[in-house]
Design a binder for these strands. Structure first.
Ligand SMILES: [Mn+2]
Ligand SMILES: [Mn+2]
Ligand SMILES: [Mn+2]
Ligand SMILES: [Mn+2]
Lengths: 224, 224
DNA sequence: ATGAACACTTTGATTATTCAAAATAAATAT
DNA sequence: ATATTTATTTTGAATAATCAAAGTGTTCAT
């Protein structure tokens, strides 16, 4: 109950939430992964997770991993909501580049009060996704799950729309912007070459762009 | 050099700066006062101040008190600048009440980056004072010192303009707003009664308002 | 001067968070 | 089935920040 409000706890909870999403079954997330995401050594993660479990925020099975409890998930979603609304504000109202807002939001997500958040949300017109296409958890109620697949799983000839960028690294986002691979943009899959480990796409009549599969894995798209 | 960036250090430095302003001579500020302002016990203040002195942020004379070094003052002014720009933003762009923005800014002042600060500053049109009339330290260069005296030192019959409210307590600010005692408002001093410990003022043709001297002490005014 | 009062400092603990290195368990390979 | 490798957990130690209570130095009043 206590740790809920510290920046540290918020980060652990938020990261665990995101890890759960990815490898989503009901399988616990190995603490090594959590440690990586949070940026601490594995031993530290073990120590902290045991504490959060004691606080009723996570469920922990030694050697297997951790999962958020409903209570922990509630906190995590709150942090994620603040993070994404802040990012949206920074881009739309302060004109920061979308490649740099993640870092800013990583700090501000812990400093914005409920009241300020509500005002920002209203000012932005209650957005449902952040600048990278990630869904903004609603203040109340469940978050919409949009079905998307990575660009790397598309077939040549398909026409898809960029929905969401999964990597927050400034370099990656900068590149994606340069290539025009931003949410809501339609692209045509020119070629998928598993052997060359590459995907070639084309936006309108621009010159085709080729990406490695690892990068294409981070770009989620939907049909039409 | 290390502590400069922690929230705790920023608070100590900022509070010390403000205390220095008030009792300004070059006299050191007793640690008891600093402890009060920061909200810790005196022993804690002693411990911390010794550390900050070691970091070259404060100069400390046991039993007498502490002063900021030029380096410490630079940090303090930065925090104050962030605090006041954030307050101004919260009032002017998010529409929060001026009585509640201080608390919000107390947290956000530690989370806003230089880049975000610059954008906010530009968005606000480079304001020179915050909603309570306090001067916003400029990004570079010295802060302007405006001469003002407390409402409590005015004489009956004088016409003065409210310049700045020194108390950040929501209750006080709420009251001041109700009475119309906000920066840039002209008021007439109806009566100053030292014995009754009261000052009566009048704004335009509203009904006169009477304040205790303690409250009037927190309201700084200038002539004309 | 002499002893209160008062202010400030020290001391001894505590909580939160983290790391490095040693210990252990689980999974893999031979 | 071993031996080896890899993932996790434990242990022992820091650092930052804080408090309560005991100790000291100063200031004041008589
Ligand atoms: Mn982000
Ligand atoms: Mn964060
Ligand atoms: Mn303020
Ligand atoms: Mn603060």
């Amino acid at each position: 109950m206590a740790r809920t409000q510290t920046t540290t706890a918020q980060n652990y909870l938020k990261e665990l939430y995101q890890l759960q999403q990815r490898s989503d079954g009901h399988a616990p997330v190995p603490l090594g992964q959590l440690a990586d995401s949070v940026g601490v050594t594995p031993g530290t993660a073990t120590t902290m997770v045991k504490r959060f479990a004691g606080d009723g925020l996570m469920r922990y099975t030694p050697r297997r991993g951790a999962r958020l409890t409903p209570k922990g998930e509630k906190v995590a979603l709150g942090v994620l909501r603040r993070h994404r609304i802040v990012e949206t504000f920074l881009v739309q109202h302060l004109g920061l580049d979308w490649s740099e807002v993640h870092e800013e939001a990583e700090v501000l997500e812990h400093a914005v009060s409920e009241k300020v958040l509500d005002r920002l949300d209203a000012l932005l017109g209650h957005p449902t996704t952040d600048p990278h296409g990630s869904p903004i958890p609603p203040a109340h109620g469940k978050m919409q799950r949009v079905a998307m697949r990575p660009l790397s799983r598309c077939k040549a000839g398909q026409r898809v729309t960029i929905g969401r960028l999964l990597d927050t690294a400034p370099g990656f986002l900068k590149l994606a912007e340069t290539l025009g691979l931003v949410p809501d943009t339609q692209v045509r899959i020119v070629e998928v070459n598993e052997d060359a480990d590459a995907v070639t796409v084309r936006i309108g009549r621009r010159k085709p762009a080729t990406l490695g599969l690892a990068a294409a894995d981070k770009i989620m798209v939907s049909n039409d």
